[in-house]
Design a protein around this nucleic acid. Sequence first.
DNA 1: CAGGTGGAGCTCGTGAACGA
DNA 2: TCGTTCACGAGCTCCACCTG
Length: 465
Amino acid sequence: MPSFRKNASKQKTIDLMQQHFEEMDPETLEEDEKTIIISLHKVLTEHLCMFPLPEDRTDLKIKVDGDGAPVMPRVHHTCVAIKVIRYFEDMGISEEEWEGLNSPFTSHTLLLFDGKEDYEDIKEHTKRLRQELADIRRDGLQVDGRQYTVSVIAGGDLKWLNAVCALSTCSHTFPCPWCLVCQGELHLTGADLKYTRRTLALMSEHAHLPHDGMEYPWECECCEFTYDSPQALIDEEAPTTNAARLKFQLEHFGVGWHKENLWGLIPEDMVADLLHHDLREIHFILERTCKRFLITAALAEAYCEFLRQYVGCFVKVKKEGKKAGAKKTKQPNIIGRECEATLKVCEPLMVLIHGVDTENYHLAMKVWSAFKALRTEMFARLGKGHTMHTRAQKAYRIRRKAGEYISAKLTLGSVSEDGTQYSHIAYWHFPEMVMKHGDLVDLSTQALEHLHWLRKKDYRDLSNK
DNA sequence: CAGGTGGAGCTCGTGAACGA
DNA sequence: TCGTTCACGAGCTCCACCTG
C-alpha cells in the first residue's frame, strides 16, 4: 500500500485520491483521474518471477475478486483484484497462516475506480480487464521460459456476484446467482426443493423477457431488432445472442471468465454474514481448519530436528502464552514417557506465508515437499495410514449442519430470518463448492476487504488532520 | 486477587460400518 | 467401489472453583 501520510483537510479528498491512485503505479490512469488500470499480464509475470510454481505444475489458477466499499463520505471505491491460488488444499492452515493467506499483500489490485459497484459502471471499467482475461485464458502465460496454462475463478460477495451476473439485488424474487430458487423457497431443504440451476443459455433467455425498467419500443443491441411491447418480445423467436445488458454477462463469463467457473464462485462475504448471524455451526467451513495429528515423542523429535535443519527458528512446537485453563494433553510415546506430542502439520508454511522474499519461498516449498514424505513415513512407522476425509464427506457434513441450522430457525418460529439467501446457499451451494474446490480457505476474499479497510483508514487519517 | 485447574460442551478429523 | 452416515476422541474455549 502506498503511504502518503501528511496533513490534509477533508476538502482534499479528491487530491488525495489522485495521489493515492498515482502511487499505485497504474498502467493507465484514465482522463478523469478517478480510475486506474493495472495490466494483468504485468502483475502475473511479476508474481511468477518472484514465486514460481513448483517444477511439476504449469497450471496456474487465479481468482478474480471484486468488491465495492465506501472509503469516505460520498466517496465509494470499487476494486477488482487477483490472487494466485497456491494449492494449499492438502496442507493444514492454522490461524497464523490464515492471517497470512488473507493479508492484503497476497492480492494484487488490477482495477480501482471511484464509483459504486453498479452493473453499468463495472461494465464500462472492466473492458480492458475482460479482454486481458480472455487473452490469457486462451494463450496461457509465458514467464521465465515456462509456459503456464491459466484457469480463472471469479469471486466476490453476493452483491458483486449479482451485479456482474446482471441480476437484481438480493431481495429480488430470484436472489440466488446459482439457481432459480424464489424468495418463498429459501428455507426448503432436502427433497422439498427442486430448483432449476442457472445456465448461461437460461440467463440469456431471461434477458429477453420483459423486466423492470425496460422502455418500449425497445431496441435490442445484439439482435438489432425493435420490440414494440413485452409481448412482441416473448413472441419473437429466441435470438442466439443477447441483449445489451446480458451481452456483458456473456462476455464476462463466456469469454473472460469461463462458464465452468461461474458455478465455482466463492462469495466470501456470504460466510462472513452467516457468522454474523451467529451461525456457529458452520464456523468450521472457513475458520480454524488447522489440521493436527498425534505423533509419538521419538517421531516428534525427529520432526523437530528435521525442521531445525531447514528452517531454524521457524520451529514452533506449541503456541506460547495459552489462556489459563487450557488443558495440557500428555501422550505416551513409544518408549513409555509422557510428552506433549501434538504438532502442527503446517509449521513450514510459516516461512512460505510470512517470508515474502524469493529465497524463503523456495526454501518453504522444498521443506513442504520433504515434510510430506516425512509425514507418510511417520504414519507408516506408526502402522496406520493417514487418510483425510474426501470432499464428498466434507460436503455432506456442511450440508447437514446447514440443514440443522435452518430447521432450528424454523422451530423458533422466526419469520424474517427463516429463509435468507445465505441459509439457502449454505445448504445447497456450499457443499457443491467444496466438492469442486476442496478446502475453501485459499479462495477467501478477505484480502480484498482488508485493502478497502486500509484505503479507508488512509483517507480518514489524512483528511481529519 | 491473580493465576492455575479441571470439567462441560463444543468443533472437527478420522476410522469404520453400511448400503447402493 | 464409492457415497453416506455414525461414533469416537482429540483439542479448544469457557467458566466455576481452587490455591498460594
